[in-house]
C-alpha cells in the first residue's frame, strides 16, 4: 500500500482517465447506494456490489487511451466457458457469491475466508494497466483491486517457500469447457515469490468502476501486466506456497509453445507468430510491442540473475 509516495508506473495527471469511465464508476457507486432495487432488476447483480474505494483515478495514467469497456468485457479468452474462438464467454449460471479463497502450503498460518468478508477489510485501489495477450492483442484496463502481496503476507510464508501457485475453480457443470478432458483442468498459474511480492502484481475484483464480470475473471483474478495475459489467472480459489516450481496449465498442455515465465518481449516470437506488434482492442491500430510490456523499470531487476531461464516463453 502506498502512503503519499507515487511510484513511477503511476503516470501523472496529464493522462487522466477519460471522463466517461470516471462517471461510469460514479454511477456504479450510486447504484450500490440504492442496491435494493438493482438486486431484483439486474441479472448481473454482482456488477453493482463493490466496496467503496478512493477515487485514485486521476493519479493513474497510461501512455495510451483506455480500452472501451464494451471491448474489454466482450473480447476474452476464457476456455472454461468457450473454446476460444467465439470470444464472448457465456458464463450464465456461474456463481461468484459466496466465493471461498484458501491460502495454504508453506505458510505459518493457512487461511480460508469468504472473499466478500475479506474485501470489506482491505483497501481497494484503481490501477490503469496494459494487458498483452500472447495471441497479439492488447488492451488498457482500469482494474480495481489490491496488491497480491497483501493477501500472501496474511498467511506469513515460510522461508522455504519459493513459488506461489494459483489455482482457478473447477465446476464442469457451469463451465462446460472443463468437460474437454484433454485440457489439464483446473487452470493453474504460478509466480516466483519475488514476482508475487512485486508492487505491480495485483489482485483484481473490479474494472471500469464495477465489480468484475464473469468473463473477466470474477470474482478474483490476477493482473501481472509485464507478462502475457495467460499468466493473469481468473476466478482464483486457492493460493499455495510451494518449494518446487509448479507446472502451469499451458506449460503442461503445450510446453513447446508456452513456458513458466512468459514475460512480454517483442523480439522473441511465438512459434506460430511474431510478437513484434500488438493490436489494440476496439481499434484497427497496430503498435510495436514493448519489452516487459513497458514495465521494465519495475520488474527487470527481478530477473537479473535468471538469465539462463527462458524468460520470454
Amino acid at each position: 500500500m502506498f502512503v503519499g509516495r507515487r511510484p513511477g508506473w503511476r503516470l501523472p495527471d496529464n493522462d487522466a482517465t477519460p471522463e466517461a469511465v470516471f462517471w461510469s464508476r460514479r454511477e456504479a457507486l450510486a447504484l450500490t447506494a440504492s442496491a435494493g432495487f438493482s438486486a431484483l432488476a439486474r441479472p448481473q447483480r454482482s456488477q453493482a456490489a463493490l466496496p467503496e474505494y478512493p477515487p485514485h483515478t486521476s493519479r493513474f495514467g497510461l501512455s495510451q487511451p483506455l480500452t472501451a469497456e464494451k471491448y474489454a468485457t466482450s473480447y476474452n479468452n476464457y476456455y472454461e466457458f468457450d473454446s476460444g474462438r467465439a470470444r464472448a464467454p457465456q458464463a450464465g449460471s456461474f456463481k461468484t457469491k459466496p466465493w471461498r479463497v484458501v491460502i495454504d502450503g508453506l505458510v505459518e498460518e493457512a487461511q480460508s475466508f469468504d472473499l466478500d468478508d475479506f474485501l470489506g477489510k482491505v483497501p481497494l485501489e484503481e490501477r490503469l494497466y496494459r494487458h498483452r495477450c500472447v495471441e497479439g492483442w492488447a488492451m488498457a484496463v482500469p482494474w480495481i483491486g489490491f496488491p497480491l502481496k497483501v493477501l500472501v503476507n496474511l498467511a506469513r510464508p515460510l522461508g522455504s517457500a519459493k513459488y506461489l501457485r494459483l489455482e482457478s475453480f473447477m465446476d464442469p457443470e457451469t463451465a462446460p469447457g472443463q468437460k474437454q478432458f484433454w485440457y489439464p483442468w483446473p487452470y493453474v498459474e504460478a509466480l516466483t515469490i519475488a514476482e508475487a511480492d512485486n508492487e505491480l502484481s495485483f489482485l483484481v475484483t473490479g474494472a471500469y468502476g464495477k465489480a468484475l464480470l464473469a468473463q473477466n475473471g470474477a470474482p478474483l483474478r490476477l493482473a501481472t501486466p509485464w507478462k502475457y495475459g495467460f499468466k493473469s489467472i481468473k476466478s482464483i480459489v486457492r493460493l499455495s506456497l510451494t518449494e518446487e516450481r509448479p507446472i502451469t496449465f499451458w506449460e503442461r498442455q503445450q510446453p513447446q509453445e508456452y513456458g513458466f515465465w512468459a514475460n512480454v518481449n517483442p523480439d522473441v516470437p511465438h512459434p506460430r507468430w511474431s510478437q513484434a506488434w500488438e493490436r489494440l482492442l476496439g481499434t484497427d491500430e497496430r503498435r510495436p510491442t514493448k519489452i516487459w510490456n513497458g514495465y521494465g523499470d519495475y520488474v527487470a531487476s527481478i530477473y537479473a540473475t535468471l538469465d539462463k531461464e527462458p524468460l520470454f516463453k
Binding site: 516470437p269 506460430r272 507468430w273 511474431s274 513484434a276 484497427d284 497496430r286
Partner: peptide
C-alpha cells in the same frame, strides 16, 4: 495485409517464417 497496417515487409517476413 490491412491488419498488418499495409506493412508489406512484415507480411512477407511472416509468410516466409510462419508455416501456416
Amino acid at each position: 495485409v490491412a491488419e498488418q497496417s499495409f506493412d508489406v515487409a512484415t507480411v512477407a517476413d511472416e509468410i516466409f517464417f510462419r508455416g501456416f
